[in-house]
C-alpha cells in the first residue's frame, strides 16, 4: 500500500515509517500540512495517515480542504490526546478512522486495511455479508454457516458481521471494541476474547473447523 504520513514529529515519523515498511507498505513523509497537500497533489496515494496537531496547516484544515475538493482518499487521523471531542472533530471533518498516539504499527496496519476494505463495502450496496461459508445479514439479525442458521446473541452477531466485513485482515481488539461495542475506552477486562470464544463455539457447534484466527497480541482475523 502506498501511504503518505503527514506528521511534524520526525522521531515518531521515522519509527512509524520503519515499522510500517515491515508490514510491506511504501511510505512518504510530509512534515507539515502544507507539504502534505503538495504531496497529495503531485502523487497518488492509497491512504493518508494524518497528524492532527501540526504547525501551519493542521490536520483538520488539511482534511477539510481535501474533502472540500471532493477528494475521497482514505485518511486515518492521528492525535496526541485521546479526548473524545478531538475524535468527534476528526471524524466530522471527514476522517475514515481516528487513532490516538502512541499507535503500534500492527494496529495502524490493521486499520489501514480495514479502511480500504470499508471503501469496497460501501461501494457495493448489498446488505448481506459473506466470507467463505459464513453469511451475515445485519439488517435481518441473521447469520448462517454452511447454510445452517446460527443462533447468535445481538453482540455476537455484530462481532461476526465485523469479522466478516474485515475477513482476510486483522481486526485489533481496539477496533472491535470501537465498532462492535461502540466504546470510546478500552475496558480492562478480556471482553473481546470472551465473546470471540463464544462465537467460535457457536460457529463450530455443527462441525466445521474454526474460521477465526487469533493473531497473538494483536487481535483476530476471519479467514477470507
Amino acid at each position: 500500500m502506498k501511504i503518505l504520513l503527514v506528521d511534524d514529529d520526525p522521531v515518531f515519523a521515522a519509527a512509524l515509517v520503519e515499522e510500517l515498511t515491515g508490514f510491506g507498505h511504501a511510505l512518504a513523509v510530509a512534515e507539515d500540512g502544507r507539504a502534505g497537500l503538495a504531496a497529495i497533489d503531485q502523487d497518488a496515494y492509497d491512504a493518508v495517515v494524518l497528524d492532527r496537531m501540526m504547525p501551519r496547516v493542521d490536520g483538520i484544515a488539511l482534511l477539510e480542504r481535501l474533502r472540500g475538493d471532493a477528494r475521497s482518499i482514505p485518511v486515518i487521523m492521528l492525535s496526541a490526546r485521546g479526548q473524545s471531542d478531538d475524535k468527534i472533530a476528526g471524524l466530522a471533518a471527514g476522517a475514515d478512522d481516528y487513532v490516538v498516539k502512541p499507535v503500534e504499527a500492527a494496529e495502524l496496519h490493521a486499520r489501514l486495511q480495514a479502511v480500504l476494505r470499508g471503501r469496497q463495502w460501501t461501494q457495493g450496496s448489498s446488505d448481506t455479508l459473506r466470507a467463505g461459508d459464513i453469511v451475515v445479514s445485519p439488517s435481518r439479525f441473521r447469520a448462517w454457516r454452511d447454510d445452517q442458521p446460527l443462533d447468535l446473541a445481538k453482540l455476537e452477531l455484530k462481532l461476526l458481521a465485523e469479522l466478516v466485513r474485515g475477513a482476510g485482515t486483522v481486526l485489533t481488539r481496539a477496533m472491535l471494541i470501537e465498532r462492535v461495542w461502540g466504546y470510546d475506552f478500552e475496558p480492562d477486562t478480556n471482553l473481546v476474547d470472551v465473546y470471540i470464544r463464544r462465537l467460535r463455539q457457536k460457529l463450530t457447534a455443527a462441525g466445521g473447523d474454526d474460521p477465526i484466527r487469533t493473531m497473538r497480541g494483536v487481535g483476530y482475523m476471519l479467514r477470507g
Binding site: A15, R81, G217
Partner: peptide, 20 residues
C-alpha cells in the same frame, strides 16, 4: 503517562514480533 506510552507502544510491537 502520555510520553511513556510511545516507547511502551513501540516495545509492545517489538515483543509481539519476537513472540511470533
Amino acid at each position: 503517562a502520555h510520553d511513556l506510552r510511545s516507547p511502551l507502544a513501540r516495545l509492545r510491537g517489538q515483543l509481539v514480533q519476537l513472540e511470533r
